[in-house]
């Protein structure tokens, strides 16, 4: 009997507690930088596409919402011919970001992507590409990898030694 009265009193005291509701459209909730929201494709510091079209993101995606086609430009850089994410399927698990070897695909703290028409949720490459490097400002994949592309020969990457000359035995 006493516990019933105490329960009621405790509930009554909640009148003076702060309300936990966030008045959403006027008052935005804080989203952590690593929040998993809308997916973007980032660029190198020098403006080139980071994506090398390795298909790892498409392979790891549990709902198969990523589609892309690899191609190569005249300098030997691989890039996606098209890159398509169907956000009506995406579950924002972030596996693609984990799988990406070049930090190209990243999830951002933005969830406000409601649409009236379902086809509008299919984002093409021009919708996904942003103008900056995203969460990894200094990183430039083509400058640290050992791959030879136009304008960068073997041994010219950052922290890369010159290739060994196989025609001499001298160290």
């Amino acid at each position: 009997m006493f516990s019933i009265l105490q329960t009621m009193w405790n509930v009554f005291l909640h009148m003076f507690h702060r309300r936990v509701t966030v008045q959403y459209p006027e008052e935005k909730p804080y989203l952590a930088p690593r929040y998993r929201g809308r997916i973007i494709l980032s660029r190198d510091p020098d403006g080139g596409e980071r994506c090398v079209a390795c298909y790892l993101c498409a392979a790891v995606c549990p709902v198969d919402c990523i589609a892309l086609q690899a191609t190569e430009d005249s300098s030997g850089r691989r890039y996606p011919e098209f890159f398509r994410i169907n956000f009506s399927r995406c579950i924002f698990c972030g596996f693609c970001e984990d799988a990406c070897p070049t930090y190209a695909i990243q999830l951002t703290p933005d969830f406000e992507m409601g649409e009236y028409h379902r086809p509008n949720l299919v984002y093409e490459k021009e919708d996904l590409l942003i103008n900056g490097p995203g969460k990894y400002p200094g990183y430039n994949f083509w400058r640290v990898c050992g791959v030879q592309i136009g304008g960068k020969d073997k041994g010219e990457s950052e922290r890369e030694a010159a290739p060994a000359d196989v025609h001499t035995l001298l160290p």
Partner: peptide
Amino acid sequence: LALWQDRY
């Protein structure tokens, strides 16, 4: 009810 459950 909302007031007593810390809602609006």
